[in-house]
Nucleic acid binder design. Sequence first.
DNA 1: CTGAAAGCGCTTACAG
DNA 2: CTGAAAGCGCTTACAG
Lengths: 325, 325
Amino acid sequence: MTVSKALNDKDGVSGELKEKIKLLAVQMGYRYNAAARSMKEGLTHNIGVIIPERFTGPTQSFYVRVFQRITKHLEDQGYYGILHILNVQDEEELILPKLYSDNKVDGFIVLGQVSKEYIELVQSMEVPKMFLDFYDEHSDIDSVVTDNFYAAYELTNVLVQQGHRRIAYVGNLYSTSSIQDRFLGYYKSLLEHRLPMNPDLVLNDRDERGTFIEIDLPAQLPTAFVCNCDQVAHLLVQKLTSLGIQVPAQCSVVGFDNDIYATLSEPKLTTVEVDVEQMARTAVHSMLKKIDNPSRSFGRVHVKGNIIYRDSVSAAPALSDDVSN
Amino acid sequence: MTVSKALNDKDGVSGELKEKIKLLAVQMGYRYNAAARSMKEGLTHNIGVIIPERFTGPTQSFYVRVFQRITKHLEDQGYYGILHILNVQDEEELILPKLYSDNKVDGFIVLGQVSKEYIELVQSMEVPKMFLDFYDEHSDIDSVVTDNFYAAYELTNVLVQQGHRRIAYVGNLYSTSSIQDRFLGYYKSLLEHRLPMNPDLVLNDRDERGTFIEIDLPAQLPTAFVCNCDQVAHLLVQKLTSLGIQVPAQCSVVGFDNDIYATLSEPKLTTVEVDVEQMARTAVHSMLKKIDNPSRSFGRVHVKGNIIYRDSVSAAPALSDDVSN
DNA sequence: CTGAAAGCGCTTACAG
DNA sequence: CTGAAAGCGCTTACAG
């Protein structure tokens, strides 16, 4: 009783005792049980927000699509997903979602790469957690990722088979694990075809904070570009077009993600579609198994992507290639 | 005890009794109390899904942005938002979110226009509800909407002041209340400036299901277009450009929403920015007041928009205008 | 097959 | 200022 009053800052407890109780609560790692209050009050302190699918639908962001699939699988299992959009400030200041301290959830799925420090913070929470669409050196985290490495490898192979020899990669290698792995897949394809790896053909596309920067084209233009995502591919195509370079006649471009930019681009982009359904299902089922048995671990699970063939790739311009080398 | 077993389809109750109990439960409008089970089990049956802001960030859909503001205000009040993306099928078959029957929420905010039938279904739920960004003839619903009418009126005034006389409106008037009201604002501006309202200049942009269709340009081109949203304005600009018509030199175009398409378009669009922050705050505070006192009602609350001036408007081409009429 | 009772972790009216 | 007790609506082990 006194403890309850103290923690809720209500009257009837001396300030001194209050402080003592609060301090001890923190020391003991006490977390409020929202369910008990809910039952007592008859209030859940949740509000449902209904958005019709067509308004988030085809043009929506990749992660919102993944979220939608996640909630579908959760619901099938009698669970609900509570979306928490982590803002930049909370990530930097290492602030955990209130969802956790209020004991509103049984676990967390982190969708999209966060800083190493934030990963560690997430790991410190005493609930199961899954990381989706990225991983990092923390070997003990459970993650579900697209097989970026192989997909990029296969995509680059397509370009090589079309006769391309001077192939650039566009992406900041130090930004996310996805960008890095896609680069390595690209590199594997070069190695396998005995093509030289030219550092001048690895082009940066964003600064450390993830903001896109102007892409510096090399003096001697490649005949093909492997871009780390569709959005950057789209920007690149715009840039090439504005310079009077025809895509794909003079230059082939491939993207990654098969998001809105893939079809918005002119020409439409050949790209890799991530298997959202499979990723969501795997993440949810692993999560529920961990709730049943917290000691279970899954490590890094890879989900295959599919190449989507569209109009941004053609055979390498034979002459220019021979001449330019 | 027996009731509990019956409802959960567990052994130890005769099939006959089970049916009797289940039937009665439905008749009495029984809804499961998830909080009580949560307390007993020590499980909330919620999973937190964390998405870093930068991945849904600047390019994200309008409604996701609104959702983010809503959750922010909810959290400030000790509440949480649970996002339910209503799929087309559930909307047609009039299926309510499981969130409701499972008693997981204290109220609903419906964000984006749903069918009349679905509105009535939502109204039948015995919890407070708020409608956001749309309304309809149901006079008893509480809604928060942008002042579409005045914003479109002001935007059209801008075009008239730039000398435009032949101004088209692009949008399906029967699709949403927003599109309809924006049209009426456009019409008011015409009336006020004694400009004729030409039905040939009201162009359809989507079918009844909201899918965009090819826009039929009138034989004699207007000098300006008021589009019901940025996405359609973007499509229109692309179409005009592909026809060799320069925007804004030969044709001015304005949009609505100030979403990703407004800046993606070339030239960037003059448009109306909706006051997301104000809409979210109003919706949340009204909702919480209704939870305290279910008989409270707010009716239709309007939130002002702001015109954003960019590069898609210029003075009407003086000669062509005179000549063409 | 059916039911009485305890307990989950809070809050709140009440007594000391 | 402090604390014993009841009750919110379930589930589950136990008894009949």
